[in-house]
Simulated assay, not measured.
Amino acid sequence: MNILLAPDSFKDCLSATEVCRYLDHGIRRIYPHAEIKSIPVADGGEGFVSAMLTALGGTEITCPVRDPLGRKIHASYGILGDKQTAVIEMAAASGIELLKPDERNPLVTSTFGTGLLMRDAIERGCRKLIIGIGGSATNDGGTGMAKALGYRFLDHNGEEIDSGGGNLNQLAHIDHSSVFPLLKETEIRTACDVTNPLTGKHGAAAVYGPQKGAPPEMVAILDQNLEHLAQIIQRDLQVDVLKLVGGGAAGGLGAGLVAFSDARLQAGFDIVKEQTGLEKAVQQADIILTGEGKMDHQTKEGKTPWGVAQLALKHSKPCIGVAGSLGEGYDELYEEGFTALFALPNGPLSLHESLAQAPQLLADTVEQIFRIIRMTQRG
Rank of each mutant, 00 (worst) to 15 (best):
H315C: 06
T109Q: 09
F153M: 02
E159G: 02
N105E: 04
T299S: 03
A259M: 08
I61S: 11
A42P: 10
E227Y: 03
I39H: 12
L116G: 02
S110W: 05
V108C: 05
L168M: 05
A42G: 13
S76P: 04
F112W: 13
S177K: 07
I3D: 00
R104W: 08
L355D: 02
P64V: 00
Q266L: 14
P32T: 13
E217L: 12
F338H: 11
G246W: 13
I27M: 06
R189E: 15
V258H: 08
A6M: 06
Q360L: 15
C319E: 09
D102A: 09
D262S: 12
P40V: 09
A42S: 15
C192S: 02
V322C: 04
T190P: 06
M375F: 10
C20E: 15
A172E: 14
L23F: 15
A6T: 09
D120C: 07
G166P: 02
P305Y: 01
T85V: 07
L98T: 00
E160Q: 11
G254L: 12
L198H: 01
K280S: 04
G321Y: 15
Y151E: 04
G141E: 07
G135D: 08
L182C: 15
A285R: 03
I3S: 06
N105I: 11
D175P: 13
T376W: 02
P197Q: 10
I131D: 05
T299L: 09
T290S: 08
S177G: 08
S177T: 15
G200M: 04
M145F: 14
V65H: 05
V41P: 10
T59H: 11
G246A: 10
L5M: 06
D140S: 03
I287W: 00
N105T: 03
L355I: 15
M52V: 14
A172F: 14
A230Y: 07
H297M: 09
E46W: 07
L5V: 12
P305K: 10
L326P: 06
D8T: 03
D262K: 08
D236E: 02
A250E: 08
R71F: 09
R21H: 12
S178Y: 08
G248Q: 08
A148N: 07
G247K: 06
